[in-house]
């Protein structure tokens, strides 16, 4: 963990070498992704609710998904750009160091520019929390923390799974984006508003539902079963096989010429 922060420091130092470029990218990221939230606000300007979910409820799920996604993009960006790592041969270098491989991959790239989206998601999250009609008792707070945690874990597992794909065909394909970006866009809404088939996919195949739907129902007192509080933790079960597949794939690794 200490090593992780040392790496962060190095990355921060590198990024600050280009201060103006850093500042401009940071601001532009902020503005571009504000567009997402703006769409929702416009949508709810016409309709007061979607299948029983109000604007702030949707904004809450939206910001939780954005939080997990941008958290991984900021702090574990190396796994998102894993195909580059293999193609330019950096991965060989990581194999030559006496440290955990996956950890080294995570920290190989850290993007502080993406932190702009992270901050944005936190702002929206706070706004929705203030405006939601929820009494914030202990169990509700725990549920929310679990949701945020699960969001990070889920995206992390998806990124790892997508990265493992590179071991089987050197260049990662767009297939991964179906699950990351595509899934992300769907999951930004409470998945209950979609047809049954989608709900099935996003519950059992990629458990987005456990990040922001089932616990959400508890949060909004639509369900009272306590099991919904810990439902987000199911994502951990999803992380374990992803890590195993990654290491299985690593055994097949065949490097690139120099």
């Amino acid at each position: 963990m200490g090593l992780y922060f040392k790496f962060m420091k190095i990355h921060f130092k590198s990024e600050l070498q280009y201060k103006l470029s850093f500042a401009l990218s940071f601001i532009s990221q902020f503005i571009v992704f504000f567009g997402y939230y703006f769409t929702i606000i416009c949508l709810f300007d016409k309709f007061s609710n979607i299948k029983g979910f109000t604007m702030y409820e949707v904004l809450l799920t939206f910001s939780i998904i954005q939080f997990g996604f941008s958290f991984c993009e900021t702090f574990f960006r190396g796994i998102d750009t894993f195909d580059d790592l293999i193609i330019n041969g950096t991965f060989d270098r990581l194999l030559l160091r006496p440290q955990n491989i996956l950890l080294q991959v995570f920290v190989n790239e850290v993007s502080f520019v993406k932190a702009s989206r992270l901050i944005q998601s936190i702002i929206i999250l706070i706004i929705s929390i203030i405006n939601l009609d929820v009494i914030w008792e202990f169990d509700k707070i725990i549920t929310l923390i679990f949701m945020l945690f699960a969001s990070v874990i889920l995206f992390l597992s998806i990124f790892i799974l997508a990265a493992s794909y590179c071991f089987f065909t050197v260049k990662g394909l767009e297939v991964r984006n179906v699950f990351t970006d595509g899934g992300k866009h769907m999951a930004q809404y409470p998945i209950g508003i979609f047809k049954k088939g989608f709900v099935f996919v996003f519950t059992y195949i990629i458990p987005y539902g456990f990040v922001n739907y089932y616990p959400l129902l508890y949060l909004l007192s639509k369900e009272n079963n306590k099991i919904f509080i810990i439902s987000p933790l199911i994502t951990i079960v999803y992380l374990i096989p992803s890590v195993i597949i990654f290491y299985k794939g690593m055994k097949r690794y065949s490097s690139v010429g120099s």
Partner: peptide, 21 residues
């Protein structure tokens, strides 16, 4: 191929390697 961080002085890379090893 380089193992040094491109944008920072080499001494910073050395210090990081110290922690890696």
């Amino acid at each position: 191929r380089s193992q040094l961080w491109w944008d920072i002085p080499a001494i910073d890379s050395f210090n990081l390697l110290k922690d890696i090893y």
